[in-house]
Design a binder for these strands. Structure first.
Length: 331
DNA sequence: TCCGTTACGGTTGAT
DNA sequence: TCATCAACCGTAACG
């Protein structure tokens, strides 16, 4: 006969099989007459006798999801109540609390995935709601400066922290502001605190910059320029792209401009978090993080570009920027 | 020879 | 968009 492998027989043939069987025709004869394997005839007739239907079963798809919002909610509560709880313990509690039964309780791996993907992200806003965590602007600012954020579970030195991956970071255990400061920081290298310490900025200005503000500030503050102190931009770019240990500029730039992890990505250019779409990675020269590309501006440029940011009073930033400019000028 | 069962390679659709 | 997974399919072979 003609059949499509993996696909059900046409309903007409299935119906015909049942009709012929009801007429008393033997399955072997039906198989020959309709040119269908006898195993297929046997299966269809057995199903018809059992269910009364000639239709094939549902093909494809997945089982109903067990990770319902209610289950996720309960898992979150368990985790918040006991941050050290194991996935299998959560599973047991879901059963004990009758949130699930044995047929729809999530697997341990599913619970782990929920903790990693859902609970973790859902818990983030709570950090701000609770008001006991690091101020938003700190992480925001660092996120901008270091678009390649440090993994939560890792300390700056690379040592494992107490929170396993996927476990919501609560209570300020781990924050970027705590995890980041290192000998590579601009503030440590240049002796500038306020620039890298958002709390200093916030306390001085009483203004909590949004992440997009920071990005805009930096993009607006450092428009593309052709060079620094007469140094051709292309030469600088080449230096940035292929930093040499002997290059004074590059010896500063990686430490200032790139996070430790980002330094590995200097050539690959995954700088999309702060580079406008469609821009080549070198466009990051327009940001503070790439001083080689666009820091040849006048203080008036800085002031005008910053002033439009929601009335942000940026004396601190400006002074820091000027210090940076003077250093670069020396270079 | 008949027929129930099952391994196999395939399709499908939700995740 | 792609991979994975688990459901189903009919054929072919076995007993």
């Amino acid at each position: 006969g003609v059949f499509v492998n993996g696909r059900p027989l046409p309903n007409a043939i299935r119906l015909r099989i049942v009709e012929l069987a009801q007429l008393g025709i033997r399955p072997c004869d039906i198989s020959r007459q309709l040119r269908v394997s006898h195993g297929c005839v046997s299966k269809i007739l057995a199903r018809y006798n059992e269910t009364g239907s000639i239709l094939p079963g549902a093909i494809g798809g997945s089982k109903p999801r067990v990770t319902t919002p209610n289950v996720v909610k309960n898992i979150r509560e368990y985790k918040q109540g006991d941050p050290g709880i194991f996935a299998w313990e959560i599973r047991d509690r879901l059963l004990a609390d009758a949130v699930c039964d044995k047929y729809n309780v999530p697997s341990v791996s599913s619970i782990s995935r929920i903790l990693r993907n859902k609970i973790g992200s859902l818990s983030q806003p709570n950090q701000y709601e609770n008001g006991k965590q690091v101020s938003p602007q700190s992480s925001i600012s660092y996120n901008h400066i270091y678009p390649y954020s440090y993994p939560n579970a890792m300390s700056p030195s690379g040592t494992k922290m107490s929170n396993p991956p996927g476990v919501p970071v609560t209570g300020g255990h781990v924050s970027i502001s705590r995890g980041w400061p290192s000998a590579h920081m601009v503030s440590n290298i240049l002796g500038i605190r306020a620039f890298m310490d958002p709390s200093a900025i916030a306390s001085a200005e009483g203004y909590a910059p949004k992440m997009e503000d920071w990005g805009s500030v930096n993009r607006a503050t450092f428009p593309s320029a052709h060079g620094v102190n007469g140094i051709d931009k292309s030469a600088i770019d080449a230096d940035i792209k292929y930093p040499q240990p002997s290059s004074t500029l590059s010896s500063y730039v990686p430490a200032c401009a790139y996070s430790p992890s980002n330094q590995y990505g200097v050539y690959s250019g995954p700088a999309g978090s702060y580079v406008s779409p469609g821009h080549h990675w070198q466009a990051q020269g327009t940001s503070l993080s790439h001083p080689g590309g666009g820091v040849a501006m006048h203080p008036s440029d800085i002031h005008s570009s910053m002033a439009f940011k929601h009335g942000m009073h940026n004396h601190t930033l400006i002074s820091v920027t000027l210090q940076l400019l003077s250093i670069i000028n020396e270079i």
